[in-house]
Nucleic acid binder design. Structure first.
Lengths: 385, 385
DNA sequence: TAGATTCTTTCTACTCCGAAAAGAATCAAG
DNA sequence: CTTGATTCTTTTCGGAGTAGAAAGAATCTA
């Protein structure tokens, strides 16, 4: 028997409702018609599905977007982007970096803390300090944390070598302190998923994310699904042979991606040439000002990066690659060489690659963590209402 | 208003019905309960969905498979594998190779014809001759053709460099001659899809297919979907740098996968050493009998293959690789070196790779073509009834 | 002011699914 | 040989979700 008591409390938790919420979140203000086409649903279904979201104030109807065409103007749907704030945190061996974001993982402010020791209690305390510095946890809908290592169930860090952790319930411990839902994810998975929803991969069903910096990160999205395997936390993208004349990596591979692309490797190469220690930013600066040794090192790095891009495109069968990470500043110096090297290792008739650079550097990781929190929050919204 | 005229003519064409047909075809005799678990459907749905297939004689109920356990024995469903025969054909620059198969792409008999010239008419005639030699087209439910090059819509060869073809409606021309439905597909896509349905990839959601022989073929299946892109026919897997000390490929890449792994390259390398021309089988034979030069060449080839496997596993994020092609005979000689090389280029903590060898050689391609015809035929069955 | 056009909503019927109960076919025990 | 336990399958019934058609709404154009 049908209840008439609350006819507005329709589904909100079905698979279509979840898809709708996701589509609106990702594709900004968008009319019901466009949504119907995108999701493969009829206009009637869109009306039905969007009503509960509107009733609960999760969606707003945008201004009537009449762009000169005849006919009734579309009333685009959008999420109430100001309705909720999230905090994303990247944990490294040296410190905690956090950002405050809106519902679309746009950075509103940032904060950082150094990390003296690696005990769980200290890391949790420092994360909480960053959360407070960013104005939380009051008014915050969720906190996302990303970390280099294996994470299961978006909660437990099963293995984080750089912190010496095994099987730490980081989400649980942090929730006790901050009092809002916490999601934990592998850093590369978080970044990849955030690029898919909010970043350079928006609307692209298949693409790869390649980050360079302290390490080499590699994430893959195929047919709108982030690929996560048991090995996701291991950094498998760091073992690709790129240059047989390059330096050695810790595992003894000559010229593999870690040996060629990480900041420490680049600095070490130039350090040998100059006979003194240099930082990554200084390497870029020297190269930009014409220092021959620096240009040579950066050039070789760029060519290796181009080769890596080509291998990824060939093997993962895709044509869009997002570059990110703290070390991506070299793109501005040698983008032509990177592109040329990538093209040289592809078939001449192959599709031109689309290389997108996310130059938000360190904060890209933290925004990725926020993105994970946002996605989890969306799941809670649509399932519990 | 419901018609009672044909209450058994239930769906048969819904998405679930298609999934059911596929699952039964792939997983052999299987009970409704297992199917329900596999497809995520309730027992009630399985009864409903399987009824029309049983009514039309497309499925049979297997013998009651009571294996000692208590309770009512399961009545497993299976396709009528004897009900239909298919022919798969591989077209190369030198000849036509065809196989007769059952509904599961098992080879029943084989036939071959040389290909003197490459005109469309001649190729069509020779394919038709092979079909007749295999007992067709009477009693044949479909013919699949695979070919190295770009194919669209499972019908049109848009580009086949080794035949000098552009935009040839091979399916259409052949259907006129043989009178049964013809499907055309890129050879690597066909093989990959057949391995997924009927071969080594059965039940594995994500895996890669790597073939060596005249060329290097590479196919990818992620989350049960064969990855097909605009570049699928180009042989992108042939451009992976593997050995900086190796020979050159036609594009000038030193030690890339084509330069290292193709039969002609292997033969040429040993040919230089011995000062005479040798065939691929002879190279393997010499290596097996201890010829130092042959062992060296095969060893280097095996190590390159291992490195390629590692790159694929790392970049495509998978742990199962199917090796096939006419040149895979070297596996028997140097499997240990291949495995060792693959392991060396992976993270020490990474999942152990599952390397599966399909040693059916040339006929693997033709069975792949038959597999495509079978899949198309299944689509016709479930859509039209 | 009256169409024309386009977007959105309402109404209704249909498809598909699952939960629960009933039925069927076996084994085990008395 | 009967009874009960177990397991698989089928039937019944109601609910969730969808699309098609027609109506309604909001704009532009003549």
């Amino acid at each position: 028997m049908k209840m008439s008591r609350d006819s507005g409390a329709a589904t909100l938790s079905s698979s279509s409702a979840r898809d709708l919420a996701r589509a609106v979140l990702i594709h900004g203000p968008i009319s019901r018609g466009d949504l119907g086409r995108r999701l493969g649903l009829s206009p009637a279904s869109l009306t039905r599905l969007s009503k509960p979201f509107l009733d609960r104030g999760l969606f707003v109807e945008g201004s009537e977007d009449h762009d000169g065409t005849v006919g009734r103007p579309a009333r685009p749907l959008d999420v109430r982007v100001d309705a909720s704030r999230f905090i994303g945190v990247k944990v490294t061996g040296e410190g905690i970096f956090g950002v405050l974001t809106d519902l679309r993982a746009n950075e509103l402010s940032a904060a950082a803390r150094p990390l003296g020791e690696h005990s769980v209690a200290h890391v949790v305390a420092q994360i909480a300090a960053v959360v407070h510095e960013l104005g939380g946890p009051e008014g915050i809908s969720g906190v996302g944390v990303c970390i280099g290592g294996n994470v299961t169930g978006s909660r437990i860090v099963t293995r984080a070598p750089f912190l010496g952790w095994r099987d730490v319930d980081l989400a649980g411990e942090l929730e006790v302190v901050v009092g809002v839902p916490v999601s934990v994810e592998n850093d590369v998975v978080a970044l990849t998923s955030a690029e898919q929803w909010f970043g350079a991969g928006r609307g692209t069903p298949t693409f790869a994310v390649l980050t360079i910096g302290v390490g080499v990160g590699y994430g893959l999205v195929v047919n709108d699904q982030v690929i996560v395997t048991a090995d996701s936390g291991l950094g498998l993208g760091g073992h690709i042979p790129l240059d047989a004349t390059g330096p050695l990596c810790p595992d003894g591979h000559r010229g593999c991606s870690r040996a060629m692309l990480t900041s420490s490797s680049v600095c070490a190469q130039l350090g040998i040439a100059l006979g003194r220690e240099v930082g990554y930013d200084e390497v870029l600066d020297l190269a930009a000002h014409g220092n021959r040794a620096a240009m040579s090192v950066i050039g070789a790095t760029g060519r290796a990066l181009g080769r890596m891009i080509a291998v990824i495109a060939n093997i993962a069968m895709l044509d869009t690659i997002v570059l990110s990470g703290e070390g991506i500043g070299l793109w501005d110096l040698v983008s032509d060489e990177i592109r040329a090297a990538a093209r040289a290792d592809r078939d001449p008739d192959a599709t031109e690659l689309r290389i997108v650079v996310d130059d938000s550097g360190l904060s890209a990781w933290a925004r990725g963590a926020a993105g994970v929190a946002i996605q989890q929050s969306l799941g809670r919204l649509t399932s519990a209402g």
